[in-house]
């Protein structure tokens, strides 16, 4: 992702000519982590995706084959992939709207209240994920308050678990902080005088956001989209507990391949496909953001 590639040279902390060596030095810890804990393990996975699987014992037998990839062309997998991508896009869109508004709201509160509000966003996540998920099941289930209240009001309500609605709602719930924080971080760094200038000029709400806040927080928005869209593919508990487990996501499929199917090579191949697809969509998102930011820069100039 290189949303900042697009924006940084134009704006942001402009790079001074001197001190580039310092720039590389600052990157060293991250490079160490990425090489040792990301690239090396991924190389292992890439290798395994071409290995023969050992169907009896699990694990891999070495060797080289394209079979693991060839099998993925089965329409069965394409269907799961399509469904997952659709759900991921929907989740990212819902999270973006809610996350953007919440981030904007928090960043316009008095400065000393903001950290408290930020903490309020994150505190629910100190309870365990499964405990929260089961709380939703209780709330939306047939013995829970949703059904009782709706029936008391005269509606013919029944349990919302399992349902697509429950899945989307709990995805929003799970990903909301991740959607809010990057946008908030960008908004917070926007010069407050711009804000005042905008309101002094009497620009409308949408105009102000379209011209000022959205372009200036584009990097945060990009991060937010990425952090919600991409990991949705790997989700595997929510579709089962709230969605009934009849429509597995790619995450469920890969877990099944690695565990029940004892087919690490095919799980690895599937992961590589997901990786390539995701990097491609990240490139698309980044490209769109770059266009957005170039346009806004041109307008500003």
């Amino acid at each position: 992702m290189s949303a900042s590639t697009a924006t940084a040279p134009a704006r942001g902390l402009r790079a001074p000519a001197r001190g580039t060596l310092l720039g590389y030095l600052l990157l060293l810890p991250a490079v160490a982590v990425i090489v040792l804990l990301v690239i090396v393990p991924m190389a292992v996975i890439a290798r395994q995706s071409f290995a023969l699987s050992d169907p009896l014992l699990g694990g891999t037998m070495g060797g080289f084959t394209w079979d693991n990839y060839a099998k993925l062309f089965d329409p069965v997998y394409a269907k799961t992939m399509g469904y997952s991508l659709g759900l991921a896009a929907l989740n990212a869109a819902v999270c973006l709207v809610v996350g953007y508004l919440l981030a904007f709201y928090i960043s316009t509160r008095p400065a000393n209240r903001q950290p408290v509000l930020l903490m309020l966003v994150i505190i629910p996540f100190l309870t365990d994920f499964l405990v929260r998920t089961f709380a939703w099941i209780t709330l939306l289930g047939s013995g829970g308050p949703y059904v009782r209240i709706a029936r008391a009001l005269g509606f013919d309500a029944s349990s919302l678990v399992p349902s697509q609605f429950a899945v989307i709602m709990s995805l929003l719930y799970a990903f909301l902080p991740v959607a809010v924080f990057p946008i908030y971080a960008s908004m917070r760094a926007i010069d407050p005088s711009l804000r005042e200038a905008a309101s002094d000029l009497g620009a409308g709400w949408w105009q102000t956001h379209r011209r000022i806040f959205i372009p200036l927080s584009a990097t945060g928005i990009g991060s937010s989209i990425m952090l919600t869209f991409v990991p949705t593919l790997g989700v595997f508990v929510i579709p089962v507990l709230l969605g009934g487990g009849k429509d597995p996501l790619v995450g469920n499929l890969i877990v099944t391949l690695f565990t029940e199917f004892r087919n690490e090579p095919m799980g690895a191949a599937m992961s590589m496909v997901v990786l390539v697809l995701m990097l491609a969509s990240v490139a698309v998102i980044t490209g769109l953001l770059r266009l957005l930011s170039i346009r806004s820069n041109r307008r500003a100039a």
Partner: peptide, 21 residues
């Protein structure tokens, strides 16, 4: 069988049966 199913569940099916879901 799949169209008849509410879902596949190994985790909280006992609660679901208990509650009548």
């Amino acid at each position: 069988q799949k169209p008849l199913l509410a879902g596949y569940n190994s985790d909280n099916y006992a609660d679901l049966v208990g509650s009548g879901d």
